[in-house]
Design a protein around this nucleic acid. Structure first.
Lengths: 346, 346
DNA sequence: TAAATTATTGCACGCGCGTGCAATCATAAC
DNA sequence: GTTATGATTGCACGCGCGTGCAATAATTTA
């Protein structure tokens, strides 16, 4: 367990910068504090004039309801926990951005925790969340990690999954229809007359990996093809490089690549060009996945599968809001479609 | 002003999932709640055995002090606000990661706000922070935006700046010695026998821009060179592309580029290669700035200036902690050195 | 004009916790 | 055995706020 102890000011400095409270506003106006409180509560019974008067005075004095105190009075707080993926992956950065913005728009406040690879930091994060009385946790990382979902549920938190699904479907999740997207990618290669396609797969055991991979196979199959090889590559740049080494080092005939994601695709392209002098689309066609910003760079011009990131972020925030408001008890699964972005690599 | 109103559960569902409180632990053990509280306070007077007993029971019952309630009792909360830069810039993503991790290590909890370009969202963010009684705000974005520092101070928040300095030095800040780093870059080009160097600058008026640019000039000057041109480019990939258009479209003789940052450098490289068939280091040398992950990619192999991101993140978190603990009243300026990472582009 | 109804407001309690103060207890000194 | 001295512990208050309930004022009805 981490240090739960609070630090304390060393000297006798003011414990807290004086802030304006509802009392100050009440005194200023000669009304009771309850009235001030009610003025800030949408469907409370207050004379309309009174409310306006209060809100005006509040603004003048710089008063804002203390969210901490509000959270204490029994209603649930509007803080939402996020366990975010590795931001080094640009796709995760995009997702994180979208989710944060969407939460903000719904007046939810995100507190984030990172789970350093390894170590039992999932539990640290969960403990922090519990101490802040959050009860919704957004899991936006697709990394394997240990049993995060279980850890959350055990701690009484309501997880919402992004880019991953709970096997038992007992947890709400928002996912892109990766399999469908991958099928489009596979068919696209077939249409481009590829005959010898290699599929690069992500790490085993991930929901996202299985869907991408399955879709890739199905897409090829639907055109009467079957991959000449499947490489368990991974989702990093280096993974893509290694895959290129394997593919072109083995001397096999390859005219198409279905990459696990853009990062690996780019690693593949770079290594293929610099080490084997093979470039797309001249020597092979390649379709990536995720549509990260780099995919559009001149040097890559990657044909790829785009996920509707904004819509997904918004949907996640919506679910979080409904849970916070106690309007959602069950689990809802959301699937949104991907689109194929045709560029020059295929 | 944004919606301050709280939502309320529609039906009569339990307002709050029942959680274990200090009372539960106290009853379980037949001691007073004060004792439980003291057991969790480091230098409170409690019998050592009692404390251990309490902590054990707490663990067994799954009790953890309610941080919300703690924050309410007068001591300052341990929530720190972050206004983060655009995560699409991989450098910002790295910074954000480092800061978050460092805060976490110091038992501080970050709540993040984004400032959508345009609109008055800075004030939204500030208001949210005030409602959560945070009094430290980390400004980690170098974007121009309106007067964030002023907005924070006016609201009674203590800003801590990362990658930017307050003109009056009245605010603590953590910065890399960009000027020194840029000088190294400039000298490096000189050593590589470049004679016609173009400097790409960021947007005007940013602290970071001025320092990079000044260092670039000084570095060249110290070797007896002066730039053949200065382009007010920017910090995005597209900015780099445009710069390449300008440079190679104008037909001027150029054998060295000092880029404002890696993203622009990469945009420059890509456009130079695809549109003008110029590649580094064959046709010109180039030094970037930031050392983002993509700088190490095979396709770029960028010589660049690296910022000690981890150390900076840690330092920022330290400052935040000291402010929270009321140990830091004044403003402290921190400057950490950059290093030149020599790769293939120069 | 008096009574019934309704719109508005104030009072008081509790959310979970930290902490000053007084009460209790164990221990040491007389 | 009695008193002085610390060492522990319990009590009670307040942090800022929401809300049920009672009290009051405004309005309508008889």
């Amino acid at each position: 367990m981490q240090n739960l102890f609070l630090s304390r000011p060393k000297r006798n400095l003011p414990l807290k910068p004086a802030r304006v409270t509802a009392n100050d506003v009440a005194e200023e106006l000669g009304v009771s504090r309850s009235t001030v409180s009610r003025a800030f509560t949408p469907d409370a019974f207050v004379h309309r004039e009174t409310r306006e008067k209060v809100l005006k005075a509040a603004k003048r004095l710089g008063y804002q309801p203390n969210a901490i105190a509000q959270a204490l009075t029994g209603r649930v707080g509007r803080i939402v926990g996020i366990i975010m993926g590795d931001l080094q992956n640009p796709f995760h950065a995009t997702i994180h951005s979208a989710v944060t913005a969407a939460l903000q728009a719904r007046n939810l406040t995100p507190i984030t925790a990172q789970t350093d690879p390894g170590s039992a930091t999932i539990n640290n994060a969960v403990e922090t969340f519990r101490r802040y009385q959050v009860d919704v946790v957004l899991l936006t990382s697709m990394q394997v990690e240990s049993d995060m979902i279980g850890a959350c549920k055990r701690a009484g938190l309501r997880p919402v999954l992004l880019n991953r699904a709970d096997p038992g479907l007992s947890v709400s999740s928002v996912n892109a229809d990766l399999a469908a997207g991958a099928r489009m990618a596979g068919r696209h290669l077939a249409e481009r007359h590829c005959r010898n396609v290699v599929v690069l797969e992500g790490p085993e055991g991930l929901w996202t990996t299985e869907n991408r991979s399955r879709g890739h196979h199905e897409g090829l199959l639907s055109a009467g093809l079957s991959p000449v090889a499947c490489l368990r590559a991974g989702y990093t740049y280096a993974d893509g490089q290694r895959a290129a080494d394997t593919v072109f080092g083995s001397g096999m005939t390859v005219d198409g690549i279905l990459a696990s994601n853009d990062l690996a695709a780019i690693g593949f392209l770079d290594r293929a060009r610099t080490a084997f002098d093979k470039i797309a689309p001249r020597d092979f066609a390649l379709v990536g996945f995720d549509d990260i910003p780099m995919a559009a760079w001149d040097g890559y011009d990657l044909t790829t599968v785009r996920l509707p990131v904004l819509r997904m972020g918004d949907r996640v925030a919506e679910l979080a809001g409904r849970i916070v408001d106690r309007e959602l008890d069950s689990a809802e699964q959301t699937l949104v479609p991907c689109t194929l972005v045709k560029r020059g690599s295929a």
